[in-house]
Amino acid sequence: MFGFGSSSASSSTPPPASEPTVAPTREQRKHCWESRDAYFACLDKGNVMVAGGTEPGEAGCKAERKGYEVHCGKSWIDYFNKRRTLELRQKATVEAAARQRDSNPANKGL
């Protein structure tokens, strides 16, 4: 998952400059994952493909998105969002291929 093509250096200056960033604790990680799952579940309901507030379908997920952005760092948000879109695209491709196979009369009766 992590190995290929994930954002390796999505640099951005954090709000208070020159303070070394402190890694989240186990508790903070858990909060981040939970708020991410809540936000993504909301997006799934609205059939939103790309997270981050760019699509109109996520109008009902404002509260979830706020929680997500409060509990997760920016680089994590970028990574999770990209991974979600990738996974959704992959799923859509697989489903489209399956549909095509099923609708092809040559494959009937398999």
């Binding site: 992590f2 190995g3 994930s6 954002s7 390796s8 250096a9 999505s10 640099s11 951005s12 200056t13 954090p14 400059a17 020159s18 303070e19 070394p20 960033t21 760092g73 920016k74 680089s75 994590w76 990574y79």
Partner: peptide, 14 residues
């Protein structure tokens, strides 16, 4: 040249 204040992820073998 990464700095301690940067916000980035590291790709690595897992």
């Amino acid at each position: 040249d990464a700095k301690a204040t940067d916000d980035y992820l590291v790709d690595h073998s897992i």
